[in-house]
Design a protein around this nucleic acid. Structure first.
Lengths: 138, 138
DNA sequence: CCTAGTTATAACTACAATGGTTACAACGGT
DNA sequence: ACCGTTGTAACCATTGTAGTTATAACTAGG
């Protein structure tokens, strides 16, 4: 199956670096720590900026957090870089046959279950903050 | 982002039909209820068979459940049709720079968090059985 | 035995997301 | 003005998805 993009883990990595040493955090520096191309990092930074998590300084370089690390959760980061339509993790096949009892009800029945499953996962992500992770990067 | 494949919802749909009327359940019949191509259904049936959930009768047609509907959970179905390496929903960028404290620890730190998030989602899926869904397809 | 209906599977397609890359414009401090 | 940086656009190879066509193999009924 297609797994959730590494953009998420790269974004967490990026924000952690910014939290620790905002001065040094040029796109190139972050890219060399993440081990990817600077443009990939710049794109991720763009998403984090759009989500109101960071302030990036064009020209001069570097970035800084716009929120207290203890107020940035993994869910915030996940949502910033993983944009799906309607924020739905699961997809349901559309246009089932309404002449069939199962086809008529499958979407409504499944939607409730899958939304629940997604919600518990997101609540778990929301329980961990960037501030909790940073001490672990000694 | 790439969402979880509709194979999952199609598989639930398929198993529901089999549970309700195993006689009629040829690939073509299921495909017309799901509203897709019969070959797509046959591929899904192959995965469900490999997972030990159904018995398919080649030649004659039709299929039957190999387990009590109350013992088939959404997680069983999810696992049957969504095969990822190592069963990991999340991916973490690999080969970060070990010369950097964040790069050195990011994988271990994040892996624990993401595994947790995945686990609570899967536990939620495991709480719902096919048997619980079927009465809702009136 | 043969045919009709079915399952199993390979091969192919179109499409989209991913992660990376090159190139270049715009910015801003020295 | 220069230099390093950010911001984007354009492109590419790879991969997963969902569907499609075609063909082989299977089974029951006539």
């Amino acid at each position: 199956m297609k797994q959730i993009s590494t953009r998420f883990s790269m974004a967490v990595h990026t924000l952690s670096l910014i939290a620790v040493s905002p001065k040094d955090c040029t796109g190139d520096f972050i890219a060399s720590s993440v081990n990817t191309n600077p443009v990939v990092i710049r794109k991720i930074m763009g998403m984090l900026k759009k989500a109101g998590l960071v302030d990036v300084r064009p020209g001069v370089g570097g970035a800084s957090l716009l929120k207290d690390p203890d107020r940035i959760t993994l869910l915030d980061i996940y949502r910033a870089v993983n944009v799906t339509e309607e924020n739905q993790l699961f997809r349901i096949h559309d246009k089932p046959n309404f002449a069939c009892p199962v086809g008529r009800n499958i979407e409504e029945v499944l939607q409730a279950e899958l939304q629940d499953a997604q919600s518990v996962m997101e609540r778990r992500l929301a329980q961990t903050t960037l501030g909790q992770l940073i001490p672990k990067f000694t």
